[in-house]
Write a protein that binds this DNA or RNA. Structure first.
Lengths: 202, 202
DNA sequence: CAGTGATGCCAACAGACGTTGACCAACAAC
DNA sequence: GTTGTTGGTCAACGTCTGTTGGCATCACTG
């Protein structure tokens, strides 16, 4: 590995072939774009390879199978802030802001949303991502662990619903709203889901 | 058509073969189940036909193509109540209640959600369904037509997000909530989106 | 009885898919 | 120069897909 990187720094750099690591990265980029745009089933290895100007067999060589390629393309991190360390009365607004920024900048989230709807294994991935990453953050805000799960689920429903309408289904009024406006509308909702009084029913 | 129905009422009814209308209905039922469970791409005509205990070629004969079959299977009506004729301070809760009941009883909604995420033409169907059916109802509640579109979009984002988390992705905390509890949590949200003061930003 | 039309099944098509293995060409080491 | 390794190409495989046309079977009409 270190020798491969070394090659590029030599004088011959210009005339050399690509490193396998570079090719893998190129493939991964094309894969993410395809998966994000078309979902798992409609994205073909042939099409991904064509986008990357590479033979389909290279994709197999470097990633083993379509499913492993997908796993690599959909690997990501929500990068949630520690809400417990922020002003408690603003966490709803801050969370909306954070997710908006996240959706616009990480294609992997789109990949997961487009694919999790049809593929059970990806749905399982989304469940564990939200359970492992959103769950604890919400738990830190809330003394009662029983309601923390529900609060996180409710927050996820509004956040994912917005992403669905804005980035996937492209409902015009939702697409046209500015980020600030969305924060202003959804902030109170998330705030209540996270810190408001529990619903009066058992 | 009337002669076909007539046949079934004769004495020979038991020994007769199926009417084409009956077969079409059987196919449509199997198709709805498959599309709802697997989405468009992963649902094969062969599998649908097998579920219906019928030859795949019959599906083609009666519906022409997979796409026309899908169009027939995903045809449906939100059956929204006229919110304007109900107590204005309760419309949020009533709408959540209505949609919960709708999701549990009409598979076509699941078909649309599972498929709209990957298929552009279906996404367009969902856009027009919400624009034509939810839009006007919200518009009747709101004097300002400019904000009515946004309010409907926000409501759609929370409703579809809940359906996504509860019926498609199956987030455990969201699945475990009772309908009453969901109404109690989402009611205030929808109420604010529909009738609350506009966000302070332009 | 023969004949007609609808219902259903079978076999096959052409195309696309994921995947595989053999073969090239460029570089590095000796 | 020879050899080994690495990045890349090519052609093909077996399978599954939507779709088609021909053939059988039954109910009814004359």
């Amino acid at each position: 590995m270190s020798t491969l990187v070394g090659k590029r720094s030599l004088a011959y750099a210009g005339s050399m072939r690509r490193t396998s690591e570079e090719t893998k990265a190129i493939i991964l980029t094309s894969a993410r774009e395809r998966f994000a745009a078309d979902g798992y089933e409609r994205s073909t290895i042939r099409a991904i390879a064509a986008d990357a100007r590479i033979d389909p067999s290279m994709v197999m060589r470097y990633y083993g199978s379509k499913e492993q390629l997908f796993a690599a393309a959909s690997d990501f991190d929500l990068k949630l802030p520690e809400l417990a360390r922020m002003p408690r009365e603003r966490v709803g607004w801050l969370l909306v802001e954070h997710f908006l920024e996240r959706w616009e900048n990480d294609e992997a989230l789109m990949v997961l949303l487009r694919t999790g709807v049809t593929n059970d294994r990806v749905a399982e991935r989304m469940r564990s991502i939200f359970a492992d990453q959103l769950g604890p953050v919400v738990n830190d805000l809330e003394a009662d662990p029983a309601s923390a799960g529900r609060r996180a689920g409710l927050a996820a429903s509004q956040i994912l619903g917005l992403a669905l309408c804005r980035y996937v289904l492209c409902f015009p009024p939702v697409v046209d709203m500015s980020p600030d406006e969305i924060v202003e509308w959804l902030g109170p909702t998330l705030q209540r889901y996270l810190t408001g009084p529990a619903a009066s029913l058992p």
